[in-house]
Amino acid sequence: MQGADPNAVRRAVETGDPLPGTAGFAGHVDEMLVRDVLGRYPLFVEGDDAREWPADPTWATDPNDLDEPLSFPAGHVQHECEEPQRRWSLPDPAPFERERGAVRELVDAVRDGIAATRPDEADAVAVAFSGGVDSSVVAAGFDAPLYVGGFAGSHDREAAATAADAMGAELREVAFTPEDVERAVPEVARAIGRPSAMAVQIALPLYLVAQRVREDGYDYLAVGQGADELFGGYAKVARAPEDPRVDADTVRGAQREMIATLPDQLERDVLALRAAGVEPVAPLLYDGVVETALRLPADSLVDDRGERKRAFRLAAREFVPDSIAFREKKAVQYGSLVGRELDRLARQAGFKRRMDDHVSEYIRSRVDD
């Protein structure tokens, strides 16, 4: 069983509690396959040639261990010889009435998440650090070195350097090279089972940083995953319902829509980190943090000036300087300049921009090789 004690998983199955005080779980217990409501750990079953769902599946935590892997759905339980059944759905609690109370509870929840996910071997953990508010809050909870990756002159390396200086923390920079990216493309695509441009652009910087972390002797990498989805970090959430990229007609509805994307995203990230030899630690995805995030009112997700992640930024002031708490950052594929380099490599290999999805075509060619 990944992520939680089997007894805690049994209780969650019995009670139907979707947020039972864990940081997620997936695996096999009492003749059942289970995966938590947010899909925080990957789980796969062997399909048939038609990729139909098997009644009595062979399962694995790595898709590369199976011939026809199917991702086991988050929030589901499958008893032997039965179809998967949904057991857990996210709760829909009433929002906080006062922002001050919401921020106070969020501070406590984040502290609890850090304490609950801290590995027993305290010196075996490092922190993936971009200098943004998410990774900085996580970094504040661990007495561990901070690692940032990117090309020379990249936004992430510059932001991480100023943030680490403000926090008085040790920063180790992982300088990416074109050769690093070229080598890692097929490795990452195979590890995550997705030879697509967006998936590889996001996973590849994590992979390269994690490889360095493992080389330096660390077994765990603490990450800030989940904050944008939970706390309203996306522009399309702020613009709901006008933004065509979301179906929801409210900001809180758009928040839940983004949270629903986490199983797919976390599967990608966990597989990439494991392929590099480290296990992720994600304090901001602890059940108590998720539960608190679901109670945030719309103006605590996005305020009337359009500032995103308002409540989380206010809570972050308890952990980091204001200059970091209210800092904006770029997505990792842009902040590290990996997206730019992948585009260059694709064009250099003959996959021109006029082609449909030329970077994905390049990645598929490297996997086939």
Rank of each mutant, 00 (worst) to 15 (best):
T261C: 00
D92Y: 07
G27I: 09
R344L: 14
A254S: 13
G224Q: 07
D369C: 01
N7S: 15
P195V: 05
I363R: 03
L342T: 11
A122R: 15
Y334S: 06
G113N: 10
S196E: 15
D49C: 00
T61V: 02
L106V: 08
H79K: 11
G339N: 11
F326T: 10
G217Y: 01
E82W: 01
P6L: 11
A115N: 15
A184I: 04
Q255D: 04
G232T: 04
A161M: 08
P280G: 00
I114S: 03
P186T: 14
E105Q: 08
S196W: 03
D65A: 05
H358E: 09
G226S: 06
M1Q: 07
A144E: 10
A124T: 01
V251H: 12
E99A: 15
Q2C: 12
G350K: 13
N7H: 15
E182K: 14
R353P: 05
L284M: 13
V9M: 06
L19K: 05
L337A: 09
S196I: 07
M167F: 01
Q265L: 15
P205N: 12
A128D: 02
L285C: 03
R310H: 13
G339I: 13
K236D: 09
H28E: 13
F25A: 04
R118S: 13
A160P: 10
M258L: 06
P263V: 11
R317Q: 15
P145L: 10
L221V: 14
S360K: 06
T58N: 07
V332S: 01
F151D: 05
